[in-house]
Amino acid sequence: MAKKISYFVTAAIILGLVIAYFTYPPFGDFINESWDILLSKDEERIRDYFKSFGFWGPIAIVILMILQIFLVIFPSWLPMIVAVLAYGFIGGVLISVVGVFLASSLGYAIGRLLGEDNLAKVLGKKKNKKVNNMVEEYGFWAIALFRVSPFLSNDAISIIAGMLTMGYRKFILATLTGITPLAIAIGYFAEDPDTLKNGLYWIGGAGLVGYGIYVYVDYTNRKKQK
Rank of each mutant, 00 (worst) to 15 (best):
residue 118 N to L: 15
residue 83 A to W: 00
residue 109 A to E: 11
residue 144 A to Q: 02
residue 121 K to E: 14
residue 112 R to Y: 04
residue 83 A to N: 05
residue 139 G to D: 05
residue 141 W to I: 03
residue 134 M to R: 08
residue 134 M to K: 11
residue 94 L to W: 12
residue 154 N to D: 13
residue 78 L to C: 03
residue 92 G to I: 01
residue 80 M to F: 00
residue 88 G to F: 09
residue 122 V to E: 00
residue 148 V to M: 14
residue 102 L to H: 05
residue 108 Y to V: 05
residue 131 V to E: 00
residue 89 F to Y: 14
residue 149 S to Q: 05
residue 126 K to S: 11
residue 128 N to Y: 09
residue 122 V to K: 08
residue 86 A to T: 09
residue 137 E to C: 04
residue 134 M to Y: 12
residue 97 V to N: 02
residue 84 V to K: 00
residue 73 I to D: 04
residue 131 V to I: 10
residue 149 S to W: 12
residue 120 A to C: 14
residue 100 V to A: 09
residue 139 G to N: 05
residue 152 L to W: 02
residue 91 G to V: 04
residue 109 A to M: 14
residue 135 V to S: 10
residue 109 A to W: 02
residue 88 G to T: 12
residue 86 A to D: 02
residue 109 A to S: 15
residue 132 N to H: 13
residue 115 G to F: 09
residue 102 L to M: 10
residue 116 E to D: 12
residue 111 G to I: 10
residue 133 N to A: 15
residue 88 G to L: 11
residue 90 I to D: 04
residue 99 G to W: 05
residue 128 N to K: 13
residue 108 Y to H: 09
residue 127 K to H: 03
residue 136 E to C: 06
residue 84 V to T: 10
residue 140 F to D: 01
residue 77 W to R: 03
residue 135 V to T: 09
residue 85 L to D: 03
